[in-house]
Amino acid sequence: MAKFQYIVIVGCGRLGSALANQLSKLGNSVVVIDRHQSSFEKLSSEFSGFQMEGDAMELSTLHQAQVKKADCFLAATDNDNVNLTVAQIAKTLFNVPTVMARIFDPARDDVYRQFGIETICPTALSSQAFLQALEGQNRENNS
């Protein structure tokens, strides 16, 4: 990853705040958007970016966050449909070069991956991790 990118993160839950903390610590310029002020309590003291209280589904919020200047846009709310919608807005309306969305539902993940939205599916990732760990266990037992 190139150094010092301008990154917009939507949703400051467990995932959003972890990403914001880490990316800010690495020296990037980070804006994190959430509907509830209280969500920003999860940001650590190492976070030196901006917090924005607002609904990312409203275009004015995204304009205010200067999404058109962003190098990277991460959709990390707990709602799959919101993530898919804001990711597509960032991609088609604001032409952000790197756009990623977290999608819980593997079926939805499949569809949207097919039409060019970069998605991260925690369900698929954890099942993979479980299966790999299980395989490792079995190999150990057999040897």
Binding site: Q88, R108, V111
Partner: peptide, 16 residues
Amino acid sequence: PYDHNNLVACQIADKM
């Protein structure tokens, strides 16, 4: 009443 649900429902109906 939620735009994101309406968009995704239409897109899935269309693409899938």
